[in-house]
Amino acid sequence: MKTCLKDKQELVAYLLGDLDKAEAEVVERHLQECAPCRRERDFLKKIFNGAGAAHRDLEKAMATVDWEALPERIARKVFDRPEAGRRERAGTSWFPAFSFRPAAVGLAAGLVFGALAMFFVLRSGLSGPKPPSGFYASPEFFDRAELEMARRETLNYLDKSQALLLDFVQPASAESTGLWQEGLGQRQAQSLLSKKKYINSQLSHLQMAKAKDICDQVELLILELAQVSQDLNDEERGQIRDRIEAGQLWLKINLVKKELENSEHESI
């Protein structure tokens, strides 16, 4: 006895006439013996009959179309629209490059226009006088601006150095001790040393001699601070403090700062 055909392709193939005679006979014999397969066959027949009914609808719908007129209608759409003629031209033209497309024409026009514009711009730039600039500044103005920038940089450097030195020389507090123990003070000192390198050239170039002198002295101290160990004792701290006081560095920094603040445009 053949195994059940329910949910197998064979039964569908049988109903659609896709099996050869021998295969079909085997299925028929099985159907006589198997009630579930007969129910399955009846159900599938309903589906295929439904599709058959739809096919009859299709035939009715086809009868409503004017098949004689349709080719001409479609041909009109194909051949009578602007781009339709292009295929004809492309096929018969002796030189396909003449079968321009709007995009290609636009591109070519753009290239020609761009080339002409470039030609006129270059020609006027090479032969004619230079057009007046929208901004003009005298060399003196630039010198003053440079000096002003150097002055501000120096003031900034001295302010920061003074703050760092103050942190160092003031009586040990939890805050300042923490600053140096965690290495923050050393890092600030390194940063100030880098800044000093940057303003060195300005101080020399702009002949800010007095400021340069003080900045150099500060730099030496900062250099020392950058190298001090994190566990500096009070005695060593006192020595550095004495040197700051002996050189009246505090006073000198204040004086230079005051001068820098007062002389916005003067050479120091």
């Binding site: 739809a54 096919h55 299709l58 719908a61 086809m62 179309v65 098949w67 349709l70 080719p71 001409e72 479609i74 041909a75 194909v78 051949f79 295929r87 004809e88 096929g91 018969t92």
Partner: peptide, 24 residues
């Protein structure tokens, strides 16, 4: 080559097949 009649022959030959497919 732009032969309109050839195109119409082509449409005539297959229009119903396409319609059947699309209608279904």
């Amino acid at each position: 080559a732009g032969d309109r009649e050839a195109f119409k022959d082509f449409v005539r030959a297959y229009q119903q097949k396409v319609f059947q497919l699309a209608y279904a």
